[in-house]
């Protein structure tokens, strides 16, 4: 059904334009659609976070603007749009202005690989997961540039911490993904999901898959700079960290990108461990939009887990952060990869 709509648009465009022009127009349309998804996702997740935080802290959360307070974040975004873009006098003005776009561009590029359902995936290449990890590590540059270009001590410390934290935890995320790739035998996202028709990878790979999932969740929380790993913007120590000097929309880009990054990491977890848009036991395979529904449900489940972490655990100190990565997660991860390889070799997977 979705495919029909897409082919209808394609044929409609072909009537009026040449082949190349149609191709370019379609690319622009898809880009616009993904920008829309980016904005809606960001705003929805901010609302969800605040609402969930409310219930965790025995409060209600935003519930005044619109039904269940759904329009609260839209009102906040409108406020941010209308605010002046300030900057410091001695800031490196070009880098300062470019920095937020690194973050949102990488978030958007990663978003293109997310399979929302069987039909809706903008970019499905054979090195999908590799592309995803390499693109998402460019996002560090945006945060690092922001910290450097602001010419502010707090921002600089925040930016330096990003460098330490993201580069360290990139290893764990990458190796947890490699563990699952050993099981899957492919990097293409659509194929990985197809392989899980007989059983999700977390069941197929049992013990090493569960360990990989736990490591992925810990490192993924660190990758998206969320509590308990929010040393980058540690409010109580650094003001607001790397985005201390940013205001208005430039700040909103960072804010939205953080939540979209959380969505991306949750989607990777869903793709790798919980079978992407597949329904449990294939119960709704015949219904056209069911894939989108199951994918959303699973991603919200994983995102809720992230939020549960955030409102439960206290923040790490920087040395504890590095100890956790280099002395615990990394060695466990290495053993885990060998374990997974042995299991696949001996045919012990389910």
């Amino acid at each position: 059904m979705v495919l029909n709509i897409f082919t209808d648009i394609h044929n409609l465009l072909l009537e009026y334009m040449s082949e190349e022009a149609t191709h370019i127009t379609e690319l622009i349309l898809i880009a616009a659609a993904y920008l829309g998804i980016f904005a809606i996702l960001g705003l929805l997740l901010v609302w969800l976070e605040r609402r969930v935080a409310g219930f965790f802290q025995l409060r209600l959360g935003p519930n005044r603007v619109g039904p269940f307070g759904l329009f609260q974040t839209i009102a906040d975004a409108l406020k941010l749009v209308s605010k002046e873009l300030t900057g410091t006098v001695k800031a490196d003005s070009q880098l300062y202005r470019i920095a937020p776009y690194f973050v949102i561009t990488t978030a958007l590029m990663s978003l293109a690989l997310i399979p929302f359902s069987q039909e809706i995936q903008a970019f499905d290449i054979n090195i999908g997961l590799f592309f995803l990890t390499s693109v998402s590590s460019i996002g560090v540059i945006g945060i690092f540039l922001a910290g450097w270009a602001s010419n502010n001590k707090y921002s600089l410390i925040g930016g330096m911490r990003t460098g330490i934290q993201m580069i360290s935890y990139e290893l764990s995320v990458g190796m947890a993904i490699v563990t699952m790739v050993v099981l899957a035998g492919t990097l293409q996202i659509s194929e990985i999901i197809e392989l899980q028709k007989d059983g999700w990878f977390i069941f197929q790979g049992h013990i090493p898959a569960v360990i990989a999932f736990m490591i992925f969740m810990i490192a993924g929380t660190a990758e998206s700079n969320r509590v308990p790993f929010d040393l980058v913007e540690a409010e109580s120590e650094l003001g607001a960290g790397f985005h201390t000097e940013y205001s208005g929309m430039n700040f909103a880009y960072y804010f939205l990108a953080e939540f979209v990054n959380m969505f991306i990491i949750a989607s990777i977890a869903v793709v790798l461990f919980f079978g992407g848009w597949l329904s449990p036991f294939g119960i709704t395979d015949a219904i056209p939009f069911a894939g989108l529904f199951w994918f959303t449900i699973k991603v919200i489940g994983v995102i809720f887990l992230f939020m549960w972490f955030r409102w439960t655990f206290p923040r790490f100190r920087i040395d504890q952060l590095l100890t956790l990565e280099w002395k615990y997660l990394l060695p466990i991860n290495m053993v885990n990869i060998v374990l997974m390889a042995l299991m696949v070799w001996l045919g012990l997977t389910l």
Binding site: V52, F55, F56, Q57, L58, R59, L60, W308, F309, W311, T312, F313
Partner: peptide, 22 residues
């Protein structure tokens, strides 16, 4: 242990609003 405690807060308040102090 920590997650069990906060999880109890969350689900009790999500479904019953019993302990909400707002």
């Amino acid at each position: 242990t920590g997650m069990r405690i906060t999880g109890k807060y969350f689900f009790v308040n999500l479904f019953t609003r019993k302990d909400v102090i707002t």
